[in-house]
């Protein structure tokens, strides 16, 4: 990468980090809420509860970490892209030397860094406060799984962000985020669901994000199915959103 592009992209990255962390809605919905849910639902349940042989506190830690990064990807990126387009920012940026790929990439990297921090914070809280015990490999592998998986929800965020009206984006983003989290079994385990609901859950990318992590801490084999499903979703989201954007920009 050209040094001047790198300089610009790094400045953009820093600004994106600052902007996201200053966004109160973001901090509440994607950092405070998963932590609060985690405490509420691990404290109200029986301490010996297990799901598929996995200790509930560890199982639900994976659920809430996944839930947090899903929200971070969907709501933050969709809002940024939509608002910046409706407020003329993207137009202004097109006349600056910052290439548009560097602009998008710096947003994705910024969100990726934030997601990584969110996962680490949740893991630390769970291990220190709730005494969740996993092997070093399990901590790292499940953390990385959720982190890598989080990028597919950023792709979904850019898709939602193609909606022109940013107020609509906010509502749609929330519905998709909360709906997918609930239906995908991040709030309540799919094991407690009816057959129909379970079938629906299996179609949700959120389920596969959680499933890969639950699988890793339950001692299962690496979830190649999950990789395949999430990968397919990413390709679908990216193709669809770039198609829509190209259509919108064709003047």
């Amino acid at each position: 990468m050209d040094t001047s592009v790198r300089r610009a992209a790094i400045a953009q990255l820093k600004s994106e980090l600052l902007r996201t962390m200053r966004n109160k809605r973001f901090v509440f919905f994607t950092i405070v809420m998963p932590i609060a849910f985690y405490f509420i639902f691990t404290s109200s349940m029986d301490g010996d509860l297990t799901v598929d042989g996995i200790d509930w506190a560890a199982y639900y830690l994976m659920s809430m970490s996944a839930y947090g990064v899903v929200g971070s990807g969907i709501t933050t990126l969709s809002q940024k892209f939509s608002r910046e387009r409706s407020q003329g920012w993207s137009r202004l940026l097109r006349i600056t030397p910052l290439p548009s790929w560097a602009f998008v990439l710096s947003k994705v990297i910024a969100q990726g860094l934030i997601n990584l921090c969110m996962i680490i914070i949740l893991f630390i809280i769970a291990s220190v406060v709730k005494g969740v015990e996993l092997s070093a490999a399990q901590w790292i592998e499940s953390g990385l799984w959720i982190w890598f998986g989080s990028f597919s929800f950023m792709a979904l965020g850019t898709l939602v962000g193609t909606i022109r009206n940013s107020d609509v984006v906010q509502v749609v983003g929330m519905i998709v985020y909360l709906g997918m989290s609930m239906l995908g079994g991040l709030w309540f385990p799919v094991e407690t669901m009816s057959d129909t609901m379970r079938a629906i859950a299996h179609a949700m990318p959120t389920y596969w994000l959680g499933h890969g992590a639950w699988n890793l801490i339950g001692g299962g084999a690496f979830d190649w199915n999950g990789v395949f499903v999430l990968g397919a979703y990413v390709i679908g989201f990216v193709v669809l959103s770039s198609y829509i954007m190209r259509k919108q920009e064709a003047v």
Binding site: R19, R22, G88
Partner: peptide
């Protein structure tokens, strides 16, 4: 340009 708002946050 016209109709460019400020960047948030």
């Amino acid at each position: 340009l016209q109709d460019v708002s400020v960047i948030e946050n």
